Amino acid sequence: MFPLKAFYWGQKGARDNFALQVRNIVEAGYRSLGETPVVIGECGIPMDMNNGESFETDRWDWQTKMMDAMLTALERSLVGFTLWNYNPDNDDHTGDDWNGENFSWFSQKRALPSSWLDHNQTSPTLDNGGRILRAVVRPYPAKTAGIPLRFDYEMNTGEFTFEWAVPEETTESNKSVDANRASRASVHDPPRTGLPPLKTNKTEIFLPSQLAHGRKVLVRGLKNEDKYTYDEVHQTLTIATHDNAPGTVHRIMVSVDPPPKPAFIVNDFWSDWGLHVFTAAAFVVSFIVFLVLSYVPY
C-alpha cells in the first residue's frame, strides 16, 4: 500500500477511515455469504469522552464529530444499524446505569419535566433533553423503488445524494454481468438481476422536519416528468420516477434553502497544512534553483 493512502487527517479523514473499515467488513460478508442484508448492531458514541468535559461545558463538539463520522461510514456502506442508544433515565453521574456506559443522546438532566411537554408529534419540545441531534437525526431512504447504489449526506449543509437502479431483466448477458458483480462484492455495484419487478415508482426518503422546517426543499437531478413532494408532518420526501425501464439508474441531489449553519469544519490535511506545504516546497525549489545558478559558469 502506498504509505500516504494509510494516512488520515481531520474530520474528512475520520469519515473516510471509518467508511473504509465498515465497507471492508460488509464486502467481506458479501464475498462469504453472497448478497445478504447486513445489520451493524449497537454502534454509538460515548458522551463522557475527554473525562466528561462536556458535562461541565455543555458543548458536544467532539461527540458530534465522532457520531457524524460513524454514521457517514454506515450510510456510505448502505447497511442497517442499531444506534446505541436512547435511555430516558440517563444522567451525568450514572450514565446509562449499565456497565459504566454513557452513550445515550438523551439526557434527563437537560430535559423538561414531562408535564411541561407538548406531546403533539410535530412539537419541538419532544426533542428537549436531546444532545448531538444534528448528527443523529439524518435523512435516509426508507423505501426505495429499486436497488440502492449510493447515499452520502453532509450534515453541515443539509445536502445529500441518493442513487438507485431499477432491477435488470434476467437475460443471459445480464446474468453474466451480475456474476462479475457478485465476485467483486462491491457495496456500490450490487447484483441487479433475479429480483421481482417493481410494484411502484415511488421512493420515500425520511427527511426530518428538524432540517427542513422553515426552509425550501430543493431536488436536483430529476428526469423529465419525474415528480417530488415533501410532507413535513410525516417527514417524508417522495420521489415519483417516470422512466422505470429495467436497468435505469436514478440519481438525485437534495438540499434545503437556506442551508443550516455548519456545526463544524470538515477539515483535512490540505486544508490545515496545504499553505505550509506549498510555502516549504516553494522555498526548497527556490533554494535548489539558487544553488544550481550559483554553480553555472557564465
Rank of each mutant, 00 (worst) to 15 (best):
F151T: 05
S186V: 03
P191W: 09
A185H: 07
E172M: 12
S183R: 13
R181A: 13
S186I: 03
A142H: 02
P139M: 00
A182F: 14
T157Y: 11
G130E: 02
N156W: 00
P197F: 08
P148E: 00
T144P: 01
A142V: 00
R138E: 00
L149R: 10
A135S: 13
R138H: 00
E163Q: 15
V177K: 08
D127T: 15
M155Y: 03
L133G: 05
L133N: 09
L198C: 14
R131L: 08
S173Q: 15
P139S: 02
R184D: 09
T125C: 00
E169T: 13
T157R: 11
T157M: 10
A145N: 12
A179C: 13
F160E: 04
G158D: 06
T171W: 15
V136N: 05
E154A: 01
G130R: 04
T171N: 15
R192L: 11
K143L: 03
V177W: 04
G194C: 05
E163R: 15
T193H: 05
P148W: 00
A142E: 04
D127P: 13
T161W: 12
H188S: 11
P196A: 07
F162V: 13
L133V: 08
E169W: 07
G146S: 05
R138F: 01
R181C: 13
W164T: 02
I147H: 02
V166C: 00
N174W: 03
A165S: 08
F162S: 11
N128D: 13
P141G: 09
Y153R: 03
E159H: 11
R138V: 00
N180V: 07
E172I: 11
T144L: 01
I132V: 07
P139T: 02
T125R: 02
G129F: 04
P167H: 08
G129D: 01
V136H: 05
E168C: 06
K143G: 01
P190V: 04
T193I: 02
M155C: 10
K175V: 15
S123F: 13
G129S: 02
V136K: 06
F160C: 06
P197D: 06
G129I: 02
R192P: 03
S183W: 09
T170F: 09
M155H: 04
E159M: 12
F160R: 04
L126P: 10
E159P: 09
T144F: 01
R150H: 13
L198G: 15
T144E: 01
E159S: 13
F151E: 04
G129P: 02
G194W: 05
N128F: 04
V166W: 01
T170L: 04
